[in-house]
């Protein structure tokens, strides 16, 4: 049985100004296997972030459902550990205290929480920064805190929403390496939302490319590169794949723009 199955998700929402509801997602269906690293790649506004939240259970879809291990998703679940683009850290808590957040909500006692959080600090390489506050940390470090928090849940899956989009280019590549390093230890299922083609190819086993709004699955592509993938960015195969995906994505971006100006 596959780990996560998205079944005919359609989603629309009302805008603040009223008027017709906007169709964000249309007939989205796909499957993700246990331990697979899957990226949702698409132009901005295609609904991939909404889709991620629907899959997690934070949003209820207008139509359709998500199944995890055969059971329908009815609400958010910390076993699907989420990592956010803007980090989602409480500014009044230290790094360590933020990492404990998930365990705290689960009712785990203080000692056990401390211990697990301290372990995760080591896993993400933030030793010495336990007592730092988020505003004292760089973007990359903040995201490591976010990752550590996710890891404390011993999650069945990671749901990552453009986690490196707020970081500068160098930090982003570093964090991609870090993510793969950590992931290879646990080999958990990962659903990764991004609009970065390079990132998607480098990280994933498979990419699900989405169309412009309303988001549909445009195509699924399996990444043929074996792991570990350290030098892969320099290979001609990588470049080819990148070009291919870029052409597809570019088409979708232009198509989406055209439809918006025409009022479709």
């Amino acid at each position: 049985m596959n780990h996560i199955r998205v079944d005919q998700i359609n989603h629309s929402f009302q805008t603040v100004s009223g008027g017709d509801p906007i169709l964000a997602l249309k007939d989205v269906s796909f499957e993700i296997e246990q331990g697979e690293f899957v990226s949702l790649l698409g132009p901005s506004g295609c609904g991939k972030t909404t889709l991620l939240r629907i899959m997690h259970g934070l949003i209820k879809p207008t139509e359709g459902r998500t199944l995890v291990d055969g059971k329908t998703v009815t609400g958010p679940d910390p076993r699907r550990a989420m990592v956010f683009q803007d980090f989602g850290l409480l500014p009044w808590r230290t790094a360590l205290h933020n990492i404990e957040m998930g365990l705290e909500f689960q009712g785990v006692n203080k000692e056990a929480r401390r211990k697990t959080a301290a372990e995760m600090i080591n896993v993400v390489g933030l030793e010495g920064f336990e007592k730092h506050y988020p505003h004292q940390l760089s973007g990359g470090m903040k995201q490591r805190v976010g990752l550590a928090r996710a890891l404390t849940m011993s999650p069945e899956s990671f749901f990552m929403d453009e986690p490196f989009a707020s970081l500068d280019a160098q930090m982003r590549e570093l964090m991609q390496e870090e993510l793969l390093r950590i992931w290879s230890q646990f080999k958990t299922t990962v659903v990764f939302v991004t609009h970065g083609i390079d990132e998607a190819i480098y990280l994933s086993d498979r990419i699900i490319v989405m169309s412009a709004r309303p988001g549909r699955v445009k195509l699924e592509i399996k990444i043929p590169f074996p792991r570990p993938r350290h030098g892969v960015r320099a290979t001609p195969e990588f470049a080819h794949l990148r070009e291919e995906l870029w052409e597809i994505l570019k088409g979708e971006i232009q198509y989406g723009r055209m439809r918006e100006t025409v009022g479709g």
Binding site: L58, M82, G88, L89, G102, E104, F105
Partner: peptide, 21 residues
Amino acid sequence: PKLIEAARAYGATERDIFFKV
């Protein structure tokens, strides 16, 4: 709202959200 969302994603109850966020 992003903080509230993060808390919900990690299993916070309404009470948790009020007192802790």
